[in-house]
Design a protein around this nucleic acid. Structure first.
Length: 425
RNA sequence: GGAGAGAUGGCUGAGUGGUCGAAAGCGCUCCCCUGCUAAGGGAGUAAGGGUUAAAAGCCCUUCGAGGGUUCGAAUCCCUCUCUCUCCGCCA
């Protein structure tokens, strides 16, 4: 959520910033509504004050044994006026809140202009696109040749966009998870977190998936429904919900492995084959809570933490800054890490690292105590994949394939594979 | 699933219709005192919001959440959520 005070005072500036995303913010409409809120709130609070004063004097009079009948008569119609005023105020406030919850985050100044992913700007590359010396297969062919990926079986159980893996390949996914968690906890200062995979509405509102992206979520049928988490970002970031961190407690860093569930509404026809885009996939997620002035530096750091994983796995990648039209709803600045996939002969997203500054923190009242003022203030939240496990698995399969269709195990994963050097049919 | 108890500020915990945003203790901050340490004395110490250019001040809201009764609710009623105890079941 954008600071309502800023919306009031600089609605036009906000509109201009959001326009860079291609988002249209009706500043005049908002300000008109805001004017109504102001007069209604002032009036409502005046009436409340009046009620409180008279209630107190009635109490006092009664205690002294005086006749309270005339006092009661005097406040008789106050209740009705107050009730009407409160109801009107509530309605306007709900309307304002709906608008505010629907506004994406303000963009950082250095976010490049653009409309699609083609306009993202490359920041750096690591490694060279793998030259295998033969015609590479993609992970689908490789997996089926190995007999360790079975999309048909998955379809019989659950339909499209699911996968079944067996044998060493299934173990390789587990090895990746372990490797990533170990690296981030032992080298990058993250605490491992185990969190719920089913969450309440408020948690998703906190991180920004709701109310706007309801159709992307899986949800239980219940009058008080659970949502399946689309990313560990949701439960982990909500660890800061309604808390005030001591000044010296930050930064707080969490890493969590969870499955992620996405309905993929609106992505029909995209990546339908293979396990690039699934309803269920594994991800290791990095989350940080930092002081407001520290978040941009933390974004660089966190992105670097994700990069280390790819470097250790010796997977070629590049880092791009997402342009104004491609960046996510809650982010003020995002780096994507794209890994080279020989089967597709191109870079594909394997991690997305975002600085959400106070956007999520405001939605969930995540604060820290300012050491100078002693007062609570919103902290900043960041998240990034460290990294997407399924896609890392694909990247290893395709980059480490041999001419005979077997797959070498990267050295970094050797300790997790029980001595296995290569996966063969 | 059944029965019962409970949810109050950073923590413990009092408060069962009126001057209670809330006793007391702990913790924390500042000051005084004491040669160090320990002890002692005093003051302060919730959050959110509105008004304001901003601050001060003033006002509103909040005692798990939502609704209700009342001139007035932490306190009474209803619903929900969560926690604890016992029984049952269970990985």
């Amino acid at each position: 959520m954008i600071d309502p005070k800023l919306l009031r005072q600089s609605a036009a500036d906000v509109a201009a910033n959001l326009a860079r995303r291609g988002f249209e913010f009706d500043a005049d409409g908002y300000l008109a509504l805001e004017e109504r809120r102001k007069s209604l709130q002032v009036e409502t609070e005046r009436l409340q004050s009046e009620r409180n004063t008279s209630a107190k004097s009635i109490g006092k009079a009664k205690a002294q044994g005086e006749d309270i009948e005339p006092l009661l008569a005097a406040v008789k119609q106050l209740g009705e006026r107050l009730e009407a005023s409160e109801a009107a105020l509530q309605e306007v406030q709900a309307e304002l809140r709906d608008i505010e919850l629907g506004l994406p985050n303000l963009l950082a100044d250095d976010v490049p202009a653009g409309n699609t992913e083609d306009d993202n700007t490359e920041v750096r590359r690591w490694g060279e696109p793998t030259d295998l010396g033969f015609e590479p297969l993609d992970h689908i062919q490789l997996g089926e040749q190995l007999g360790q990926i079975d999309f048909d079986a998955a379809a019989r159980i659950s339909g499209a966009r699911f996968v079944v893996m067996t044998g060493p390949l299934a173990r390789l996914q587990r090895a990746l998870i372990q490797f990533m968690l170990d690296t981030h906890t032992s080298e990058h200062g993250y605490a491992e977190a185990y969190v719920p995979y089913l969450v309440r509405t408020q948690a998703l509102v906190g991180t920004g998936q709701l109310p706007k992206f309801e159709e992307d979520q899986f949800k239980t049928i219940d009058e008080n429904p659970f949502y399946l988490i689309p990313t560990a970002e949701v439960p982990v970031t909500n660890l800061a919900r309604e808390t005030i961190f001591d000044a010296d407690a930050l930064p707080v860093r969490y890493v969590a492995h969870t499955p992620c569930f996405r309905s993929e509404a609106g992505s029909h026809g995209q990546d339908t084959r293979g396990m690039i885009r699934q309803h269920q996939f594994e991800k290791v997620e990095l989350v940080q809570f930092v002081a407001p002035d520290a978040s941009m530096a933390a974004l660089e750091e966190l992105t670097g933490h994700a990069e280390v994983i790819l470097q250790r796995l010796e997977l070629p990648y590049r880092v791009v800054t997402l342009c104004s039209g491609d960046i996510g709803f809650g982010s003020t600045k995002t780096y994507d890490i794209e890994v080279w996939l020989p089967g597709q002969q191109r870079y594909r997203e394997i991690s997305s690292c975002s600085n959400c500054n106070d956007f999520q923190a405001r939605r969930m009242q995540a604060r820290r105590r300012n050491p100078e003022t002693g007062k609570p203030e919103l902290l900043h939240t960041l998240n990034g994949s460290g990294v997407a496990v399924g896609r890392a698995l694909i990247a290893i399969m395709e980059n480490y394939q041999e001419a005979d269709g077997s797959i070498r195990i990267p050295d970094a994963l050797a300790p997790y594979m029980g001595g296995l050097k290569k996966i063969s049919p």
